[in-house]
């Protein structure tokens, strides 16, 4: 579904800061890929390159067999198929919850308002917040906001969901409700790429775990072999600290 070939990403003047150094990866349909790694390892940048929120410096990314790194590709069309959930939720504060969820479907998918609201109502039920349709983001807790953000992405009916540290900005007691929703989403067969520090979630949900450090994928595998038998010394060190 997503194929990344020789991806480089540099920042700063004269590209001095090299964040991604020759990353290649393939993610198949239905996979739940969890990316872990220390801060500054490039995992968020890698995720954000997948829908070109960060412009890759070089390399190729294919999504559903289309080269999305080419300037000719219509990135906006492709992004509709790739939902993204952010660490800081990024709900639109001037719109009600209902409007937050229906804005994309109405304006981009050209759905009628009634259809979009019907879909939104279903999604609100699914994320467990059916009574919040007319509330505004400022009235919600962090966990509720993130669930709405997930519903907003799902409203576009994406083929893949990208999660960028979705629980990092939450109070500990609210992490559970978001992770539960993500687990539910995973069991429904959604293709997911998740950057997170939640090792429990990785162990339970991931079909594959990638460990990134200093702009490279150092090791990957199923949760079992990844946690029980890590090979890379850097990964061993990392797991020793976080587990």
């Amino acid at each position: 579904m997503i194929t990344v070939k020789n991806l480089y990403k540099n920042f700063g003047e004269n590209d001095q800061i090299k964040v991604l150094k020759n990353v290649s990866e393939h993610i198949s349909k239905g996979e739940k890929v969890v990316i872990i790694g220390p801060s500054g390892s490039g995992k968020s940048t890698f995720l954000r390159c997948l829908n070109r929120l960060e412009e890759p410096s070089s390399g190729e990314i294919y999504f559903e067999n289309q080269l999305i790194t080419s300037p000719k590709s219509d990135i906006n069309k492709l992004r509709m198929k790739m939902g993204m959930v952010f660490q800081h939720f990024n709900l639109f504060p001037h719109l009600s919850i209902m409007e937050n969820i229906t804005l994309g479907p109405i304006k981009l998918l050209k759905m009628s308002k009634a259809d979009a609201e019907k879909r939104a109502t279903d999604l609100l039920k699914r994320v467990g917040l059916p009574d919040k349709a007319n509330a505004y983001p400022a009235q919600l807790s962090g966990g509720q906001k993130q669930r709405i953000a997930i519903a907003r992405s799902l409203a576009m009916n994406p083929d893949v969901m990208l999660f960028d540290e979705p629980t990092s900005a939450l109070d500990p007691e609210m992490v559970g409700e978001v992770l539960d929703l993500m687990k539910e989403l995973a069991s429904d067969g959604m293709t997911m790429v998740v950057v997170t520090h939640e090792m429990g979630f990785a162990r339970e949900v991931a079909t594959r775990i990638l460990f990134m450090d200093e702009g490279n994928i150092l090791e990957q595998g199923t949760p079992d072999e990844f946690f029980s038998n890590p090979k890379n010394p850097r990964l061993k060190e990392f797991l020793a600290k976080v587990l």
Partner: peptide
């Protein structure tokens, strides 16, 4: 306005101008 607002808009598939206008 927080850069996250632009990112959220763009990630849904809005163009730069649509993001400006609606969000």
């Amino acid at each position: 306005i927080d850069a996250g607002q632009t990112e959220a808009g763009r990630s849904l598939g809005f163009t730069y101008m649509q993001t400006m206008w609606y969000i």
